[in-house]
Deep mutational scan, measured.
Amino acid sequence: MAAAAAAGAGPEMVRGQVFDVGPRYTNLSYIGEGAYGMVCSAYDNVNKVRVAIKKISPFEHQTYCQRTLREIKILLRFRHENIIGINDIIRAPTIEQMKDVYIVQDLMETDLYKLLKTQHLSNDHICYFLYQILRGLKYIHSANVLHRDLKPSNLLLNTTCDLKICDFGLARVADPDHDHTGFLTEYVATRWYRAPEIMLNSKGYTKSIDIWSVGCILAEMLSNRPIFPGKHYLDQLNHILGILGSPSQEDLNCIINLKARNYLLSLPHKNKVPWNRLFPNADSKALDLLDKMLTFNPHKRIEVEQALAHPYLEQYYDPSDEPIAEAPFKFDMELDDLPKEKLKELIFEETARFQPGYRS
């Protein structure tokens, strides 16, 4: 834990890192770190609560700039109880001085990944967590956004079992017609939660990839272990087919990539493993919904509104309290091709509203 900075004593240090967030945020305490930044909790002297502050230093890398800009653009436009918001952003007053960006968010005690390492969940908890994931996802999908990296560590939890989806750095506007060349190379989302079509096709992607990830998360809540822990690309596919069985001819016809289709045709026939054999203690309604989410063919996979209306979630289902976005989200430009200098300018502009004396 960093010592509390005395008023006016300059930035606090946390594990050798400068955290320049005073005077409003003090009493910093280390939480963890990701690929390009550290997260601390801090005391907000204005709202009198502890908050989470993520320090991001992305400006050396085009990919990190892209992810940072995506996350900020999306989260500043989203407003939903099951999606983490941005409360404040701290950065230098000029673009030349801006080396880091500090993002202030609600402090959540833990995440689903940490929880599943230590606790076996009751059916009631599984049901409530799944409902909140789908409630947040309904809003995301209504904005025409794909999260693309749903996994237990991106689901934040607090002691009252509130759940918030975080990390929109890989999110995209849904565009089933656009052929994202190089899709697989830039697709760094965790393999275990990846839909089979991501490994088999490169053309376009749809909201059904997020539903697949939610199915993987439900299976993990039922058993405290990942359902498809593939060691590499082909191993991942083999794990999936080992449980779902061989795809039907109709399902194979959806695979545009001939090499991928021929690979699947070359494999020995596998039978589907019954879900109640894998999860003998699970609620039968939970397994019915799991089956509809972990469907090989993305066109037959359940959609988020149908999933919310499934009998497993009937005690929570309330369409009048499951809000959607006001308007579909649009990125003005494809960020993939922009140089990091341009992305830095866009991050600077996007964060201006939090600067003292800002006038829109």
Rank of each mutant, 00 (worst) to 15 (best):
A5W: 13
V14Y: 09
V18H: 05
V18D: 15
Y25S: 04
G32P: 04
G34K: 03
G37K: 09
V39A: 04
C40H: 00
C40S: 14
Y43I: 02
D44G: 07
D44W: 01
D44R: 05
N45M: 01
V46D: 15
V49M: 13
R50T: 01
V51G: 14
C65P: 05
Q66N: 00
R70L: 14
E71K: 08
K73Y: 11
I74N: 15
L75C: 02
L76C: 03
R77C: 03
I84E: 06
I84F: 15
I84S: 02
D88V: 09
R91Q: 04
P93H: 04
T94I: 10
E96M: 00
K99S: 05
Y102R: 06
I103P: 02
V104E: 08
D111G: 03
D111V: 14
L116I: 06
L121H: 06
S122T: 02
I126V: 13
C127S: 15
C127D: 06
L130R: 07
L130K: 02
R135W: 01
G136R: 13
L137P: 12
V145H: 05
H147F: 05
D149Q: 10
L150S: 11
N154D: 04
N154Q: 12
L156D: 10
A171N: 02
D175E: 14
P176D: 08
H178W: 10
T190L: 10
Y193E: 11
Y193D: 11
Y193V: 13
Y193F: 15
A195Y: 01
P196F: 05
E197F: 10
G204A: 12
T206K: 13
K207A: 12
K207G: 12
I209Y: 11
A219L: 13
A219Y: 12
M221G: 04
L222T: 06
P226D: 04
K231G: 08
D235K: 06
N238R: 09
L244S: 08
L244F: 04
S246M: 01
P247Y: 02
E250T: 00
D251C: 04
N253H: 08
C254L: 09
N257E: 12
N257Y: 15
A260W: 02
A260F: 02
L264P: 13
L264K: 00
S266E: 02
S266P: 00
L267A: 04
P268A: 02
S284K: 07
K285R: 13
A286P: 00
L287A: 06
D288A: 11
L289K: 05
L290E: 11
L294T: 05
T295A: 08
E303T: 06
A307G: 04
D321I: 05
E322Q: 02
P323A: 05
I324Y: 05
F329P: 00
M333Q: 04
E334I: 00
E334A: 00
L335A: 11
D336I: 01
P339I: 06
K340H: 08
E341A: 06
K344C: 03
L346I: 10
I347F: 14
I347Y: 05
E349Y: 00
